[in-house]
């Protein structure tokens, strides 16, 4: 069974249709890259998969392991293993990162009927993960993303992904704002999570990221549709020729 199936998805925001019948099938173990011009609907797709309110799905469906994802609350989706690394992670003043991570992890575990992690158990786990991603302990004591640099916010998203061990990871422009070293560390973190059971959907504008995270499939999105799919070489083609060739197709 496919892990994630998006079928003929049509989505409106207020009075504008943004996704016009999008189809995407992701199987366990696969890495998919989605590329496409600004405003083509990449973040919209990721938000609808994660369950963000404010989007009106007018047609199509999203199945996760065969279950209707659109029927589930966002937290239910998270507990079942859907993870979105946000393009623009929010700042939450007054909530320490480590309290947030502990609460979130235990909430997911509770929903899955697993035991709760005590503070020492959690600390041990989060320290290991933070270390592997080169994230200083200090960051965990600060408010969630408060005063974090753009790159630190992105690293915090990857940290969460590593901590929650989801089944499907959607990475929305994880490479934006990262310097070359940070990009490599983050990509190593993502690669370390690649497994035959887990799938990744990597949204990016730059072929460079795909040198680090090598995709099995590359999809080009334009104006709310997937207009072309291919192997990893498609990304190289795009780098050379740009998106204009697809504008008409869409």
């Amino acid at each position: 069974m496919s892990l994630l199936e998006v079928k003929n998805l049509k989505v409106r925001v207020e009075d504008n249709e943004i996704l016009h019948g999008l189809t995407l099938t992701v199987n366990p173990g696969e890495v998919h890259a989605i590329m496409g011009p600004n405003g083509s609907g990449k973040s919209t797709l990721s938000h609808v998969i994660a369950g963000k309110p404010g989007y009106d799905v007018t047609d199509g469906e999203i199945l996760f392991r065969g279950e209707d994802l659109l029927e589930m609350e966002p937290d239910e989706r998270a507990a079942k293993g859907v993870f979105l690394a946000f393009q623009y992670p929010v700042e939450i003043p007054g909530v320490t990162t480590w309290n947030f991570l502990h609460t979130a992890l235990n909430a997911q575990r509770k929903a899955r009927g697993e035991s709760q992690l005590s503070s020492p158990e959690f600390l041990k786990k989060v320290r290991e993960v933070a270390k592997s991603l080169n994230i200083p302990q200090d960051m965990l004591k600060r408010g969630v993303n408060v005063g974090f640099s753009g790159g630190e916010k992105k690293r915090n998203e990857i940290l969460q992904m590593a901590l929650f061990e989801p089944a499907v990871c959607i990475l929305d422009e994880m490479d934006s704002g990262l310097d070359i070293d940070a990009l490599r560390i983050a990509a190593d973190g993502v690669n370390a999570l690649r497994s035959p059971e887990r799938a990744m959907v990597v949204i990016t504008h730059y072929q460079r990221l795909l040198n680090y995270i090598i995709p099995d499939f590359v999809h080009v999105m334009s104006k709310g549709r997937v207009v072309k799919s291919g192997g990893k070489d498609l990304a190289l083609e795009l780098e050379a020729s740009g998106y204009t060739q697809f504008e008409d197709a869409a």
Binding site: E73, D75, A78, P89, V95, N99, A104, A107
Partner: peptide, 24 residues
Amino acid sequence: ESLLFYLRARGLSEKEAQALLIQA
């Protein structure tokens, strides 16, 4: 709303997400 969604996307129920933001 955007903070609430972020928390819910990480697995917190509506009440749990509210509780964390109220505490803050």
